[in-house]
């Protein structure tokens, strides 16, 4: 009897809350890997990439276990910074991600580190830290569900998402 009461109580835990709207916006991965490319270990293709404005890609990619920005990533982030300077009312969330080949907790930290590395770069191009927040998803929200080096390279990313 007492046990069943305990279990009934556990149901109280179920909390009404917001749907993760940020996740819902992410496109379901298409698995055709032919369009993709990798240079070194970093994805250089365009699959899944969206544009914040004309010529302003929303994401940068990383090498395995790394959070260093590549030349291409820095170019993308400079375009983002220019766009943010022009649109001073827009705030952004940088969503950091890792691939599935790492332990869950370490990947949460790695996603945070990647998003911060993008944040730091935006700040050096004049964007105030007040306008940028950081959110790590670790390996929880891959864009490509494949188990291949190409799929993993697409998932190691920091995505800039409009917050307002």
């Amino acid at each position: 009897m007492i046990l069943s009461k305990i279990f009934k109580n556990t149901l109280v835990v179920i909390v009404a809350c917001l749907v993760l709207s940020a996740c819902a916006t992410k496109k379901e991965a298409t698995i055709d890997s032919i369009g993709g490319q990798i240079q070194g270990d970093v994805y250089t293709g365009t699959e899944g990439v969206k544009y914040l404005a004309d010529g302003v890609p929303d994401r940068v990619f990383f090498a395995t276990n790394e959070s260093i920005l590549t030349t291409a990533s820095r170019e993308t982030l400079r375009a983002q910074a220019a766009w943010l300077r022009k649109n001073s009312d827009i705030n952004v969330v940088l969503e950091g991600h890792a691939d599935e080949r790492g332990t869950r907790e370490y990947n949460l930290a790695l996603g945070e580190r990647r998003a911060n590395s993008a944040k730091d770069y935006l700040m050096t191009y004049g964007i105030s830290s007040d306008r940028i927040s950081v959110l790590s998803y670790g390996k929880e929200r891959p864009i490509d569900s494949g188990s291949t080096p190409l799929a993993w390279s697409k998932n190691r990313r920091s995505v800039t998402v409009k917050a307002n």
Partner: peptide
């Protein structure tokens, strides 16, 4: 799907009986 996984807290006896979900899956 792997790209939109729904995750809930669950509890069960060590032998798999009396499984209960503790959250609804609205948040990760």
């Amino acid at each position: 799907p792997k790209t939109q996984r729904i995750k809930k807290l669950a509890i069960m006896d060590q032998d798999g009986f009396n499984n209960k979900f503790l959250t609804l899956g609205n948040e990760l």
